[in-house]
Amino acid sequence: MAVTLEDVDHVARLARLGLADEERHALRADLESILGYVDLLRELEIPGEGPGVEGLPEDGCRERLDEVRQSQAADLVLPAAPTVDLEGRFFRVPKVLD
């Protein structure tokens, strides 16, 4: 599997990873080598059933009761957050579009 620098840039953007130029080159080579290895799976012909995650409980998704459990976590999380507003109630981020 050939991996180009553009491919690296594309997935890096989807993953919101800023990469230095040398990192891009190194990662391109790494991805190419790893994806080359995983191409091993191509030799397997597997009759297609739907997708799914193996290994999860077979008997279905466990549920909880619809009960309110108030948490005080925000009182601990907000003061330790990277930045908050003056009253300390909102998380603050660089302006988001739209």
Binding site: D66, E67, V68, R69, Q70, S71, A74, V77
Partner: peptide, 28 residues
């Protein structure tokens, strides 16, 4: 519902900012 889809926080509208949050819905 009284509580959120995946955690026990209240769904009440109009609470103080971030008052109805817990580690699950804060994504910790």
């Amino acid at each position: 519902t009284s509580s959120k889809l995946f955690c026990g926080c209240s769904t009440t509208f109009g609470a103080a900012p971030n008052a109805n949050t817990c580690p699950v819905c804060l994504g910790l």
